[in-house]
Protein backbone atom coordinates (compact mmCIF):
# COMPACT_ATOMS: atom_id res chain seq x y z
CA UNK A 1 0.00 0.00 0.00
CA UNK A 2 2.90 2.32 0.74
CA UNK A 3 4.15 1.86 -2.77
CA UNK A 4 0.75 2.72 -4.23
CA UNK A 5 0.50 5.90 -2.20
CA UNK A 6 3.86 7.29 -3.15
CA UNK A 7 3.99 6.15 -6.76
CA UNK A 8 2.15 9.08 -8.42
CA UNK A 9 4.17 11.71 -6.57
CA UNK A 10 7.57 10.24 -7.41
CA UNK A 11 6.63 9.78 -11.04
CA UNK A 12 5.66 13.43 -11.35
CA UNK A 13 8.62 15.05 -9.64
CA UNK A 14 11.70 12.95 -10.22
CA UNK A 15 12.84 10.04 -12.34
CA UNK A 16 11.91 6.71 -10.88
CA UNK A 17 13.72 6.11 -7.64
CA UNK A 18 13.45 2.78 -5.87
CA UNK A 19 10.98 3.24 -3.04
CA UNK A 20 12.16 1.55 0.11
CA UNK A 21 9.55 1.45 2.81
CA UNK A 22 10.88 2.67 6.17
CA UNK A 23 11.76 0.01 8.69
CA UNK A 24 8.98 -1.02 10.99
CA UNK A 25 9.24 0.77 14.32
CA UNK A 26 10.53 -1.56 16.99
CA UNK A 27 9.74 -1.28 20.62
CA UNK A 28 11.40 -3.97 22.74
CA UNK A 29 9.45 -2.85 25.83
CA UNK A 30 6.19 -3.49 24.09
CA UNK A 31 7.24 -7.07 23.41
CA UNK A 32 8.36 -7.59 27.01
CA UNK A 33 5.12 -6.15 28.42
CA UNK A 34 2.92 -8.11 26.03
CA UNK A 35 4.68 -11.37 26.88
CA UNK A 36 4.52 -10.62 30.60
CA UNK A 37 0.82 -9.84 30.53
CA UNK A 38 0.08 -12.92 28.41
CA UNK A 39 1.98 -15.18 30.79
CA UNK A 40 0.21 -13.63 33.78
CA UNK A 41 -3.19 -14.10 32.20
CA UNK A 42 -2.44 -17.72 31.34
CA UNK A 43 -1.33 -18.31 34.92
CA UNK A 44 -4.57 -16.82 36.19
CA UNK A 45 -6.64 -18.98 33.84
CA UNK A 46 -4.70 -22.02 34.94
CA UNK A 47 -4.86 -21.31 38.68
CA UNK A 48 -8.51 -20.36 39.07
CA UNK A 49 -10.78 -22.96 40.60
CA UNK A 50 -12.81 -23.58 37.48
CA UNK A 51 -13.13 -26.91 35.76
CA UNK A 52 -12.54 -25.64 32.22
CA UNK A 53 -13.30 -29.07 30.78
CA UNK A 54 -16.84 -28.63 32.02
CA UNK A 55 -17.32 -25.51 29.97
CA UNK A 56 -17.53 -27.64 26.82
CA UNK A 57 -21.12 -28.53 27.72
CA UNK A 58 -21.86 -25.01 28.85
CA UNK A 59 -23.40 -23.60 25.66
CA UNK A 60 -25.78 -26.55 25.39
CA UNK A 61 -26.69 -26.24 29.08
CA UNK A 62 -27.35 -22.54 28.84
CA UNK A 63 -29.39 -22.99 25.68
CA UNK A 64 -31.50 -25.59 27.51
CA UNK A 65 -32.14 -23.21 30.42
CA UNK A 66 -32.92 -20.33 28.07
CA UNK A 67 -35.47 -22.60 26.42
CA UNK A 68 -36.96 -23.47 29.83
CA UNK A 69 -37.15 -19.77 30.69
CA UNK A 70 -38.40 -18.22 27.51
CA UNK A 71 -40.28 -20.92 25.58
CA UNK A 72 -43.30 -20.53 27.83
CA UNK A 73 -42.85 -17.68 30.33
CA UNK A 74 -45.27 -17.61 33.27
CA UNK A 75 -47.31 -14.63 32.15
CA UNK A 76 -49.63 -14.92 35.14
CA UNK A 77 -46.76 -13.71 37.34
CA UNK A 78 -46.39 -10.49 35.37
CA UNK A 79 -48.77 -8.30 37.48
CA UNK A 80 -46.88 -9.24 40.64
CA UNK A 81 -43.58 -8.67 38.80
CA UNK A 82 -44.70 -5.22 37.67
CA UNK A 83 -45.67 -4.33 41.22
CA UNK A 84 -42.25 -5.46 42.51
CA UNK A 85 -40.55 -3.57 39.70
CA UNK A 86 -42.45 -0.49 40.80
CA UNK A 87 -41.06 -1.02 44.33
CA UNK A 88 -37.56 -1.13 42.82
CA UNK A 89 -38.11 1.96 40.71
CA UNK A 90 -39.41 3.77 43.79
CA UNK A 91 -36.22 2.93 45.63
CA UNK A 92 -34.27 4.22 42.65
CA UNK A 93 -36.26 7.46 42.52
CA UNK A 94 -36.15 8.25 46.24
CA UNK A 95 -32.49 7.31 46.42
CA UNK A 96 -31.76 9.51 43.43
CA UNK A 97 -33.60 12.52 44.92
CA UNK A 98 -31.88 12.15 48.29
CA UNK A 99 -28.54 11.80 46.56
CA UNK A 100 -29.19 14.94 44.52
CA UNK A 101 -30.28 16.99 47.52
CA UNK A 102 -27.20 16.04 49.54
CA UNK A 103 -24.62 16.03 46.76
CA UNK A 104 -25.71 19.31 45.18
CA UNK A 105 -24.28 21.71 47.81
CA UNK A 106 -21.34 19.36 48.44
CA UNK A 107 -20.27 19.37 44.80
CA UNK A 108 -20.06 23.17 44.87
CA UNK A 109 -18.02 23.08 48.07
CA UNK A 110 -15.71 20.53 46.44
CA UNK A 111 -15.09 22.65 43.34
CA UNK A 112 -11.89 24.62 42.94
CA UNK A 113 -12.48 28.34 43.35
CA UNK A 114 -15.55 27.99 45.57
CA UNK A 115 -14.86 25.75 48.55
CA UNK A 116 -11.88 26.29 50.87
CA UNK A 117 -8.98 23.92 50.17
CA UNK A 118 -9.30 21.69 53.29
CA UNK A 119 -13.07 21.22 52.75
CA UNK A 120 -12.41 20.45 49.11
CA UNK A 121 -9.79 17.89 49.98
CA UNK A 122 -11.98 16.10 52.54
CA UNK A 123 -15.04 16.07 50.27
CA UNK A 124 -13.14 14.70 47.29
CA UNK A 125 -11.67 11.96 49.46
CA UNK A 126 -15.16 11.15 50.71
CA UNK A 127 -16.57 10.97 47.17
CA UNK A 128 -13.91 8.57 45.97
CA UNK A 129 -14.19 6.48 49.13
CA UNK A 130 -17.93 6.08 48.58
CA UNK A 131 -17.46 5.28 44.91
CA UNK A 132 -15.11 2.43 45.71
CA UNK A 133 -17.68 0.59 47.88
CA UNK A 134 -20.42 -1.28 45.99
CA UNK A 135 -23.92 -0.09 46.88
CA UNK A 136 -24.95 -3.54 48.03
CA UNK A 137 -22.25 -3.40 50.72
CA UNK A 138 -23.46 0.04 51.77
CA UNK A 139 -26.96 -1.43 52.03
CA UNK A 140 -25.66 -4.27 54.21
CA UNK A 141 -24.03 -1.74 56.51
CA UNK A 142 -27.08 0.47 56.98
CA UNK A 143 -29.66 -2.28 57.14
CA UNK A 144 -28.63 -2.87 60.75
CA UNK A 145 -30.27 0.47 61.50
CA UNK A 146 -33.11 0.60 59.00
CA UNK A 147 -33.99 -3.09 58.70
CA UNK A 148 -34.85 -5.02 55.54
CA UNK A 149 -37.11 -2.40 53.96
CA UNK A 150 -37.12 -0.52 50.67
CA UNK A 151 -36.00 2.49 52.68
CA UNK A 152 -32.64 0.75 53.19
CA UNK A 153 -32.31 0.34 49.46
CA UNK A 154 -33.16 3.98 48.84
CA UNK A 155 -30.66 5.15 51.46
CA UNK A 156 -27.91 2.93 50.05
CA UNK A 157 -28.51 4.31 46.57
CA UNK A 158 -28.52 7.84 48.01
CA UNK A 159 -25.16 7.32 49.72
CA UNK A 160 -23.67 5.81 46.58
CA UNK A 161 -25.18 8.62 44.55
CA UNK A 162 -23.39 11.20 46.68
CA UNK A 163 -20.09 9.69 45.55
CA UNK A 164 -20.81 9.77 41.83
CA UNK A 165 -22.98 12.90 41.66
CA UNK A 166 -20.54 14.81 43.86
CA UNK A 167 -17.65 13.96 41.55
CA UNK A 168 -19.49 14.70 38.31
CA UNK A 169 -20.80 17.90 39.91
CA UNK A 170 -17.47 19.43 40.80
CA UNK A 171 -16.01 18.37 37.48
CA UNK A 172 -18.88 20.10 35.67
CA UNK A 173 -18.42 23.24 37.77
CA UNK A 174 -14.69 23.32 37.15
CA UNK A 175 -15.28 22.80 33.45
CA UNK A 176 -17.42 25.90 32.91
CA UNK A 177 -16.15 28.77 30.82
CA UNK A 178 -14.43 31.33 33.06
CA UNK A 179 -15.77 34.35 31.15
CA UNK A 180 -19.16 34.73 32.85
CA UNK A 181 -17.53 34.19 36.26
CA UNK A 182 -15.06 37.01 35.57
CA UNK A 183 -17.93 39.18 34.37
CA UNK A 184 -19.79 38.65 37.65
CA UNK A 185 -16.59 39.41 39.59
CA UNK A 186 -16.03 42.55 37.55
CA UNK A 187 -19.57 43.71 38.24
CA UNK A 188 -18.88 43.33 41.96
CA UNK A 189 -20.79 40.10 42.51
CA UNK A 190 -20.44 38.16 45.75
CA UNK A 191 -19.38 34.53 45.92
CA UNK A 192 -23.04 33.46 46.01
CA UNK A 193 -23.89 35.67 43.06
CA UNK A 194 -20.96 34.21 41.14
CA UNK A 195 -22.33 30.72 41.69
CA UNK A 196 -25.88 31.75 40.82
CA UNK A 197 -25.20 33.87 37.74
CA UNK A 198 -21.69 32.92 36.59
CA UNK A 199 -21.65 29.15 37.06
CA UNK A 200 -25.16 27.76 37.41
CA UNK A 201 -26.57 28.87 34.01
CA UNK A 202 -23.63 27.16 32.33
CA UNK A 203 -23.53 24.04 34.46
CA UNK A 204 -27.26 23.40 34.88
CA UNK A 205 -27.84 21.34 31.71
CA UNK A 206 -24.96 19.08 32.67
CA UNK A 207 -26.26 18.73 36.21
CA UNK A 208 -29.77 17.80 35.10
CA UNK A 209 -28.31 15.42 32.54
CA UNK A 210 -26.28 13.44 35.05
CA UNK A 211 -29.08 13.46 37.60
CA UNK A 212 -31.12 11.62 35.01
CA UNK A 213 -28.19 9.35 34.22
CA UNK A 214 -27.84 8.54 37.90
CA UNK A 215 -31.51 7.60 37.95
CA UNK A 216 -30.85 5.14 35.13
CA UNK A 217 -27.98 3.65 37.13
CA UNK A 218 -30.22 3.46 40.20
CA UNK A 219 -32.92 1.56 38.34
CA UNK A 220 -30.40 -1.20 37.58
CA UNK A 221 -28.86 -1.05 41.05
CA UNK A 222 -32.22 -1.18 42.82
CA UNK A 223 -33.04 -4.44 41.08
CA UNK A 224 -29.76 -5.80 42.43
CA UNK A 225 -30.39 -4.56 45.97
CA UNK A 226 -33.41 -6.85 46.17
CA UNK A 227 -30.95 -9.76 46.35
CA UNK A 228 -30.17 -8.99 50.01
CA UNK A 229 -33.87 -8.88 50.83
CA UNK A 230 -34.83 -5.20 50.81
CA UNK A 231 -37.72 -5.93 48.48
CA UNK A 232 -38.40 -5.23 44.84
CA UNK A 233 -37.88 -7.25 41.69
CA UNK A 234 -34.46 -8.57 42.74
CA UNK A 235 -36.00 -10.16 45.82
CA UNK A 236 -38.68 -11.85 43.75
CA UNK A 237 -36.18 -12.99 41.14
CA UNK A 238 -33.83 -14.62 43.66
CA UNK A 239 -36.60 -16.54 45.37
CA UNK A 240 -37.94 -17.92 42.10
CA UNK A 241 -34.40 -18.73 40.94
CA UNK A 242 -33.81 -20.67 44.14
CA UNK A 243 -37.00 -22.65 43.57
CA UNK A 244 -35.77 -23.13 39.99
CA UNK A 245 -39.12 -22.05 38.56
CA UNK A 246 -37.66 -21.23 35.20
CA UNK A 247 -40.82 -20.03 33.40
CA UNK A 248 -41.32 -17.43 36.15
CA UNK A 249 -37.66 -16.41 36.03
CA UNK A 250 -38.04 -15.91 32.29
CA UNK A 251 -41.12 -13.72 32.73
CA UNK A 252 -39.36 -11.66 35.43
CA UNK A 253 -36.29 -11.14 33.25
CA UNK A 254 -38.51 -9.98 30.39
CA UNK A 255 -40.17 -7.46 32.72
CA UNK A 256 -36.80 -6.23 34.01
CA UNK A 257 -35.45 -5.83 30.48
CA UNK A 258 -38.51 -4.01 29.12
CA UNK A 259 -38.81 -1.65 32.08
CA UNK A 260 -35.08 -0.88 32.14
CA UNK A 261 -34.88 -0.26 28.41
CA UNK A 262 -38.04 1.92 28.52
CA UNK A 263 -36.66 4.05 31.36
CA UNK A 264 -33.26 4.30 29.63
CA UNK A 265 -34.85 5.43 26.37
CA UNK A 266 -37.09 8.03 28.06
CA UNK A 267 -34.33 9.38 30.22
CA UNK A 268 -31.90 9.37 27.31
CA UNK A 269 -34.34 11.33 25.14
CA UNK A 270 -34.83 13.93 27.89
CA UNK A 271 -31.08 14.17 28.40
CA UNK A 272 -30.43 14.74 24.72
CA UNK A 273 -33.19 17.36 24.63
CA UNK A 274 -31.57 19.17 27.56
CA UNK A 275 -27.96 19.04 26.41
CA UNK A 276 -28.51 19.50 22.67
CA UNK A 277 -31.66 21.66 22.72
CA UNK A 278 -34.58 21.30 20.34
CA UNK A 279 -33.67 21.15 16.69
CA UNK A 280 -37.01 22.53 15.55
CA UNK A 281 -36.79 25.78 17.44
CA UNK A 282 -33.26 26.42 16.18
CA UNK A 283 -34.46 26.25 12.62
CA UNK A 284 -37.51 28.46 13.15
Amino acid sequence: MTALNTAPRTSRTAPARPVTPPAKPRNPWRVVITVAITVAVILVFWSVKVDWARTVNLPADIARYLWLMFSNPAWDKVPEALWQTWRSVEMAWVGCLLGIVISFPLSFLAARGIGPAPVRFVLRGLFSLIRAVPEIVIAIVILSVTGLTPLTGALALAVNGIGTLGKWGYEAIEGVHPGPIEAVHAAGGSRWQTVRWGIWPQASPEFVSFWLYRFEINVRASAVLGLIGVGGIGDMLTSYTQYREWPTVGALLIVVIIVTVAIDLTSGAIRRRITEGSRVRDLA
Binding site: A223, V224, I257
Partner: peptide, 8 residues
Protein backbone atom coordinates in the same frame (compact mmCIF):
# COMPACT_ATOMS: atom_id res chain seq x y z
CA UNK B 1 -27.76 -7.80 27.48
CA UNK B 2 -26.97 -4.41 29.04
CA UNK B 3 -30.44 -4.05 30.59
CA UNK B 4 -29.84 -6.83 33.11
CA UNK B 5 -27.47 -5.99 35.99
CA UNK B 6 -24.47 -8.29 36.54
CA UNK B 7 -25.68 -9.57 39.91
CA UNK B 8 -28.97 -10.75 38.42
Amino acid sequence: VRAVPDLL
